[in-house]
Write a protein that binds this DNA or RNA. Structure first.
Length: 491
RNA sequence: GCCUCCGUAGCUCAAUGGUAGAGCAGGGGCCUUUUAAGCCCUUGGUUGUAGGUUCGAGUCCUUCCGGGGGUACCA
């Protein structure tokens, strides 16, 4: 509970609230007509009459005339209010204001003797009285004092973070632009946006632990989706040729600086195309997002990333050779195992070939993929929904993952549309699940039936939107890309 | 999950194991061009929680809660 210090501030403000009402003024107004926002105020407006609204962020009261700053969505502006300009009653109202109040001001733009653009108030309106104090952050020459340093505070009370630290909002403005750019890009290519179930009786489409929930009336367990893949492909079966969904997916896994239990995923599928087409398409999509944000190159966590060149495409054996000097046959278990030993990787004797390859990639290759690079042709064991390579090599699939700055941004493949093969792959997953693999997915008869009805050749891609936002706002923390990140409740 | 660090007033921070303090915010007073406004006075604390060691704990030990960083799982 609140202790005495805070209670005393709140009581004091409640007292002011009462006084304002006694003056016949409603401290929670219904509307206010603004003529400008703070960022509109320039020298051209000097001597012009303006109306502005915002939150009081600083107060310098001195007897019969005072200065204050208000902050709105676009910035801050100083106002000057003098008793002789606004009258006794309005000035008394001003004296009852606190940092955190919303006020509306009407007045003329002028410059103080220290050349600060300021509004000379002719009338002040109370719009919303603050009751609980906001941290009082002082600022001088762009340097902030008394800044809230506690990250937890910023995540739990994002609105306070945004008030105290308005730059925070820029990340989310950018996020909105990125999502718009992607939507526009897909819509311009005649894609149809759809919404598939969040509550799924069987989860699938990715390897991840799901959240469980329960529907009372149906008396049935449901899972929150870990991916939209299996539903979107049913729509390709049904006759849509280009579909996408921007979805919140949910994975019941650990939280760290690049993982949040709920996150935004884009998945899109295009009939009659393959992974080669999709690599071109995704590259174009990324370059479009950059240009829509007026960005040419990216500086991310100290890395300069060049988007002007064509994205590299490299197979796993090429990349392993490049980054480890191991020239190995990725179908030969003992060769790969020996390479892992040589590279001092933490592996077990009975690890599968695919997981050994995965380990080399994760430890030795992926962190070094700074410039945009497609890693292609993954082992079939870790790609249960992808077609095997068309050259007859059944060990590898037509799959790609896009890496930038050591992080994965996209995952796509030529979608498996052979119903017999697909059923076998599901059975493999099911066996893994039975033998304790918590991330393997169960057999989805509904989906398999759809594939038996027939799915045209199709390519599909998934892109983690939060990570893309991280890249474009130059942050290593997914919590900077998500407005309300998942936190443990306080007890 | 594991390792590690942190938690003192609304905010930022002090306090060899020895009376919990300051600045800002809040309250009162003065103040009609200030801008981290200023000057004088002043309120505000079960030091995250529960226990332990000790004559004495904000400080040392343990539990729990929350968080940061790392690591694992995760693609």
């Amino acid at each position: 509970m609140e202790n005495k210090s805070l209670k005393q501030i709140i009581d004091n403000r409640l007292e002011k609230l009462k006084k304002i009402r006694e003056m016949g003024i409603e401290p929670y107004a219904y509307s206010f007509n603004c003529s400008h926002s703070t960022s509109d105020i320039t020298e051209e407006l000097i001597d012009k009459r303006v109306c502005l609204a915002g939150r009081i962020m600083a107060l310098r009261k001195m007897g019969k005339a005072s200065f204050s700053h208000i902050q709105d969505q676009h910035g801050k502006i100083q106002f000057y209010i003098a008793r002789d300009d606004v009258g006794e009653e309005n000035y008394n109202l001003f004296k009852l204001t606190d940092i955190g109040d919303f006020v509306g001001i009407e007045g003329k733009v002028f410059k103080t003797k220290t050349d600060a653009l300021t509004i000379k108030v002719s009338s002040l309106t109370m719009l919303s009285k603050n009751i609980k104090p906001i941290p009082d952050v002082k600022e001088k020459d762009g340097e902030k004092f008394n800044m809230v340093s506690d990250k937890e505070f910023r995540y739990r009370k994002r609105y306070l973070d945004m008030i105290i630290n308005p730059e925070t909002k820029e990340n989310y403005v950018k996020r909105s632009k990125i999502v718009n750019s992607i939507r526009n890009f897909l819509n311009e290519h005649d894609y149809i946006e759809v919404e598939t179930p969040v509550l799924q009786p069987i989860y699938g489409g990715a390897n991840a632990k799901p959240f469980k929930t329960y529907h009372n009336a149906l008396d049935q367990e449901f899972f929150l989706r870990i991916a939209t893949e299996l539903y979107l492909k049913q729509l390709i079966v049904g006759g849509f040729e280009k579909v996408y969904e921007l979805s919140k997916d949910f994975r019941n896994e650990g939280i760290d600086r690049s993982h949040n239990p709920e996150f935004t995923m884009l998945e899109f599928y295009q009939a009659y195309s393959d992974y080669n087409f999709m690599m071109e398409f995704v590259e174009e999509m990324f370059k479009r997002a950059l240009s829509d944000l007026n960005m040419k190159a990216i500086e991310w966590d100290g890395h300069k990333i060049d988007f002007s060149k064509k994205f590299a495409r490299k197979t796993m054996d090429q990349l392993i050779k490049e980054h480890t000097d191991c020239d190995i046959d990725l179908t030969n278990h003992s060769e790969v195992f020996d390479a892992c030993k040589k590279l001092n990787l933490d592996i077990e004797e009975d690890d599968s070939l695919a997981s050994l390859i995965d380990e080399i990639m994760r430890r030795k290759v992926e962190p070094n993929l700074i410039q945009p690079t497609y890693v292609i042709n993954h082992p079939v064991e870790i790609s249960p929904l992808a077609k095997v390579k068309r050259d007859g090599n059944n060990n590898f699939t037509e799959r790609f993952e896009l890496f930038i700055a050591g992080m994965e941004f996209a995952n796509g493949f030529s979608e498996l549309n052979d119903p017999i093969d697909q059923r076998k792959r599901f059975e493999d997953q099911s066996m893994k699940k039975d033998s304790g693999d918590e991330e393997a997915f169960p057999i989805d008869e509904n989906f398999l039936e759809a594939i038996e009805i027939g799915m045209p050749p199709t390519a599909g891609v998934g892109i983690g939107i939060d990570r893309l936002v991280m890249l474009l706002i130059d942050s290593r923390w997914i919590r900077d890309a998500i407005i309300f990140p998942t936190l443990k409740s306080l007890k």
